[in-house]
Design a protein around this nucleic acid. Structure first.
Lengths: 244, 244
DNA sequence: CGCTATCTTGATATGAATCAATAGCTGTGG
DNA sequence: CCACAGCTATTGATTCATATCAAGATAGCG
């Protein structure tokens, strides 16, 4: 694709003017291949960059005492990494590649130009940050209100919904590049218990686990069970300033 | 104070130019007194306003199945309410006054002008949203990695740190306008267990509970126990565009 | 082919929820 | 001023969900 990755990503939300495309394209730097496990943003960094994940998955995570990990956010291809890190002087959590992939980086200072020259794009970034925040609140609610099984279900449904955005015709089967231990770090359970629950759901015919893939056999039942509402992650652009 | 509430709030982060002050002042509407328990933002609303909490406390919360509640965010005097609600087309969670208080509202459309005329202010809003997000991630980490007692401690320390920002010389004693049941909704525990833990901490001389007040008798010990780092909620303004 | 990480399953332990009962406190109306 | 209703806090007894411990079984991988 001749357009930069940011451009193609943001087009999802609104049509971009040539000026806007130019500003975005101009911000773009070299793209970079990263192996699975490689660190994108180190904890304590005063990170200079915002990244667009072109391909592959990444996660942001917090390291607890005794090295226990909590995964805070999963980044899918097309997601913007490092927006939350723009506020604080130094990055409070780390971001790591979950699979190998490609990302392109933009200097944080480039944001400044965005705010000056293309206010509508700035507003879009703002709205995207706000959507992230809503998703996080949902996770707090899920951690706080749901049982172990319901948390796993919430995780699967939410992930599927996000994948379905780009992958328009996504079946209920998708690749899940996490070990059961890592799923535990997402939903806050021990590996053993994640296994038990997944096994049970498979036995009950609610999911089908085929090594790196998983298939939701009873999606609507699951959605009912936890009262899942697909937020679609659409942004309200009605209040945005006029295009530059 | 002759300045609007937004102005005095944002001054905390950077000096504002007269133009910026004017734009902010112009956005400001009537202020409004709200009683405890009154709803500020209703779930499902396509909320038109952003609010500044002039006095009193508010909470944002999610209603689970069977009416169980999870408190997602506590708003203190000076906080901006409804920033996260700007992204999605309709508000996913509700915001309620925890105590009675005063808030002033700004039409969401006013943000548009902000992005056009005072990019530096827009950047500040963006950074504030990002700080909120970091705080939320910390809560996810706390819910996921900590034991019940540690979650309560985290809640108390975090609240104290936030109060200390405005209340420069805050002792380790402060007003806690939550019932034990509500504390449970914050840290995700049953009222009974919250009581047991608070009682135990009191017996051990770590806190002192004097009806609506609480005093942390062993703050540094607590901070060590959960590895608490005070983020101070400072914003990095170095990349901001020049003042308008 | 062995090495190591991952998955699987059973037995047991425990932190936190639930159930239940009492006590205190706050306000309201008679 | 008392009586009562309705929250909030407290405490004990019990149960249950999830963690922990332990031991294979599998499977990817050099």
């Amino acid at each position: 694709m001749s357009d930069g990755c940011l451009v193609s990503r943001l087009r999802r939300y609104m049509a971009l003017t040539p000026t806007e495309c130019a500003v975005l394209a101009d911000m773009e730097r070299e793209e970079e291949q990263k192996e699975a496990g490689k660190i994108v943003i180190r904890r304590g960094d005063s990170s200079e960059n915002v990244h667009v994940l072109k391909s592959g998955w990444a996660v942001s995570r917090s390291v607890g005492p005794e090295g226990r990990l909590q995964i805070l956010r999963i980044f899918l291809p097309g997601d913007i990494v490092g927006l939350a890190e723009v506020g604080p002087p130094e990055s409070p959590h780390e971001v790591v590649m979950q699979t190998s992939g490609v990302l392109c980086s933009f200097p944080r200072a480039g944001l400044s130009r965005l705010f000056i020259e293309t206010p509508r794009l700035a507003a879009l970034f703002f709205a995207l940050g706000s959507l992230d925040q809503v998703a996080l609140r949902d996770r707090v609610a899920s951690l706080g209100l749901h049982s172990a099984e319901d948390r796993i279900i919430h995780f699967l449904l939410d992930l599927r919904a996000r994948l379905a955005i780009t992958n328009a015709q996504l079946e209920d089967s998708f690749r899940l590049p996490f070990s059961q231990a890592e799923i535990g770090q997402i939903v806050s359970l021990t590996p053993v218990y994640v296994n038990r629950l997944l096994r049970r759901m498979a036995r009950e015919g609610r999911v089908e686990i085929d090594k790196p893939f998983i298939r939701l056999l009873d999606r609507s039942g699951m959605e009912r069970q936890i009262g899942f509402t697909d937020r679609y992650y659409t942004a309200d652009t009605s209040w945005f300033p006029p295009p530059a």
